[in-house]
Design a protein around this nucleic acid. Sequence first.
DNA 1: CGTCATTTTGATAGCACTCAACGAAGGTGG
DNA 2: CCACCTTCGTTGAGTGCTATCAAAATGACG
Lengths: 221, 221
Amino acid sequence: MASIAAGKSIVSDAFGDKRALRQALLALQRGPISFQRNNIIACEGDAVDYIFVVVSGVLRSCKTFQNGDRKVIAFYLPGDLFGWDDEESSFSVEAASDAVVMFIKRSGLMVLAGTENHVANILLATTMTELRRSQEHALLVSRTAKCRVATFLTDLSKRLGCKESIDLPMSHQDIADYLGLTIETLSRAITDLERSGVLVRSSSHRKLLVQNRALLANATS
Amino acid sequence: MASIAAGKSIVSDAFGDKRALRQALLALQRGPISFQRNNIIACEGDAVDYIFVVVSGVLRSCKTFQNGDRKVIAFYLPGDLFGWDDEESSFSVEAASDAVVMFIKRSGLMVLAGTENHVANILLATTMTELRRSQEHALLVSRTAKCRVATFLTDLSKRLGCKESIDLPMSHQDIADYLGLTIETLSRAITDLERSGVLVRSSSHRKLLVQNRALLANATS
DNA sequence: CGTCATTTTGATAGCACTCAACGAAGGTGG
DNA sequence: CCACCTTCGTTGAGTGCTATCAAAATGACG
């Protein structure tokens, strides 16, 4: 598979291309490994010593409560790297679609960060990006359903590269759990946006055509 | 004021006590500066080149929307340091109570982090702590009002040092905005907890007596 | 004691959830 | 190729939680 072959270089790309650094990173890499949708990559509470690099597909980080309901903390798209939260992960990491993932040994990377300033900077910058996203997300989940959905679609569109159509790479259930909504409310919000002339559903439920990006942006506030 | 005098040492404490490092940090420090409640320390959109260290009191990081409603992203208690999100802050930083704050020049600290491994580690660790908190917060705001309040009180109690009484260092309005509730719903949730025998209100609205910590923990789920 | 800010309580309305049924798409086997 | 099944998404009716609006109570402060 082409995307698997791309795995190695994705890691190097993320951290730059100095020869010595490349060598050091190679030693820390594992994978790439393919996962089918809904496969569990790391379990909540596991002591994970690996950082995840998404090669293709989408991962979700989520938490399931005793009463059975689940919440999605974040989605990770190709190119994203994440997972140095702690010794033990507080959330489980799962494949939201078929996905290919590279792994980097965290402890080794930390040592490397000690000598390679560049690596330390990337770790910090990536963590800050994720912090920012998480904070925006926390803001989002206490607004109206329509606003949450519009914002989600806008952000996703940006992260996917701003085409006029949005191919949802995860299920409605995943999106609903991410936005703190039920799938019914999510569906109704999309219907609502459709009626407002913002977008059109395609026959495949996974595809949305944005008709009026200004209106969509409007719905985010 | 004693707390102001403590400002300098708080910064050194956070970063360790090697003589050379202490010297370098001293050069980067500004303050301590006192702020009255509701004073704005940094405005949303400002290009802030300073990291904040809370000496005493409580700071809030928040965002105000066009329609006028405000949301609180996070509270920062004495000893917390934060604020290296980016070149321009996406949220405003304000005093939630009378507070004393130290400032550290960010750009200088970043340079220092390049040579001082120790400093880089602290930056990363602190950012990760905040990320973790933000993620938990995002989870929280889509649960029931009672659960949100109970969880908030539990967490605050932990951060303040787990006494049997909780002195709320911020207004109900701040808490409500943090939890994505109205002050009315917040008040009703507290009344609810009181009726369940979890806690008792004291005459001063800012003080709560936890009667049954197990019941409080129970209400968080 | 009076004023102001803050918190609490009450009545009502609205938004999102729950439960239920239907529809659409994709896969499997005959 | 079609019937069947399963999964996923959509739509509808009714309920419940939280917001809104309004007013009273409490505490802080001069």
